[in-house]
């Protein structure tokens, strides 16, 4: 696993990544299967979002606090804020248009 911005956050990052990856590996394939049916999809998504929060929510909060501090220390907070303003990327990008590369 890669390092975090600061050594202080690396152990928290690794714990969090391990938690997320374990959750994600169990999540993905059933999510694809469940999405064939709209009701099943929203039921599965809801359950899994709650499960993610329950398993990784606590370690995420600790890691996030640490990394937010690190982002500030490295002077990246203003650059990140500017990039978010220029392009919030709050929605998935549209699918590519056929025939246009």
């Amino acid at each position: 696993m890669a390092h975090s911005l600061t050594d202080e956050c690396t152990p928290l990052k690794r714990q969090y990544d391990t938690c997320f990856n374990a959750w994600f590996e169990g999540y993905l394939e059933p999510a694809v299967a469940a999405s064939a049916n709209p009701d099943q999809r929203s039921k599965y998504s809801q359950e899994k979002a709650a499960e993610y929060e329950a398993s990784c929510g606590k370690i995420w909060a600790q890691y996030r606090d640490c990394v937010q501090k690190a982002v500030k220390e490295k002077g990246l907070d203003a650059l990140l804020e500017q990039a978010r303003q220029e392009n919030p990327m709050k929605d998935p990008p549209p699918p590519p248009t056929p025939g246009k590369s």
Partner: peptide, 26 residues
């Protein structure tokens, strides 16, 4: 050349199951 990776924001949409992740790579 990629030495650090941090998640700065992440959400799992409880309706669509879409996962959005924002990271900073060093």
């Amino acid at each position: 050349h990629v030495v650090t990776i941090d998640v700065v924001d992440r959400s799992v949409d409880p309706q669509t199951g879409i996962i959005r992740t924002e990271r900073i790579l060093g």
